[in-house]
C-alpha cells in the first residue's frame, strides 16, 4: 500500500505535482524524486549546510525540512538560480577567486550567499562571516569564499 500523499509546490519557478509519504524529507524529495542532485547531502543533520535551498527565498536546511510542510510554497535550488547555461555574478566570482575547491559545499554556500547579496548588496565582512556561519567548508579555510562574496559586493551598484 502506498503511503504517498499528493504534494504540490513550486520548484525553480515550475509547478510540481508529485506525491510523497508524509515523513519525506525535502532533501530526499529534491534529490531522489525530482533528480535535482545539485543540492548536496553532507551530514543529513543540519550541521554542514551543503543541502541549503531557498524556501520562499529564505535559505533553509532541506535535510531538516519536511517536504509536506513546504506544500504550496516556492523552493529554489542551485539549479534554479540562473538559466542553465549562465552563471550569476556570485557564481563567476566563486570560480575566479578560487572559492570552490572540492565543490561539495559550494551549492550550499552559493544559495546562502546569494540570498545575503540579494537582501544586502553591500554586506560588511562581519555580516558575511555571520551569515555563512552555518555552511561548513573543509577545503578553503573560507578565505576565498569571503573574498568572492566581497568581490560581488564591490561590483554591484
Amino acid at each position: 500500500m502506498s503511503r504517498d500523499r499528493p504534494l504540490e509546490l513550486t520548484v525553480n519557478d515550475q509547478p510540481v505535482e508529485s506525491a510523497a509519504p508524509e515523513e519525506r524529507i525535502l532533501l530526499d524529495f529534491l534529490r531522489e524524486d525530482l533528480e535535482l542532485v545539485g543540492t548536496k547531502r553532507g551530514c543529513d543533520l543540519g550541521t554542514c549546510g551543503c543541502c541549503t535551498v531557498w524556501v520562499d527565498g529564505r535559505p533553509t536546511l532541506s535535510c531538516l525540512t519536511l517536504a509536506h510542510l513546504v506544500k504550496g510554497r516556492s523552493v529554489t535550488t542551485i539549479e534554479g538560480l540562473a538559466p542553465p547555461t549562465r552563471l550569476t555574478a556570485l557564481q563567476r566570482a566563486f570560480v575566479e577567486h578560487g572559492a570552490t575547491q572540492c565543490g561539495f559545499c559550494t551549492p550550499g554556500f552559493i544559495m546562502t550567499a546569494s540570498a545575503l547579496l540579494r537582501d544586502h548588496p553591500h554586506p560588511s565582512r562581519p555580516q558575511i562571516l555571520r551569515v555563512i556561519g552555518g555552511n561548513l567548508c573543509r577545503c578553503t579555510g573560507y578565505t576565498k569564499i569571503i573574498e568572492a562574496i566581497e568581490a560581488v559586493a564591490r561590483e554591484s551598484t
Binding site: 549546510g49 535559505p59 533553509t60 536546511l61 556561519g133 552555518g134 555552511n135
Partner: peptide, 9 residues
Amino acid sequence: VATPLVRAS
C-alpha cells in the same frame, strides 16, 4: 543560537 540556517527554521 546554532547557525543562521538553523535560525531560519
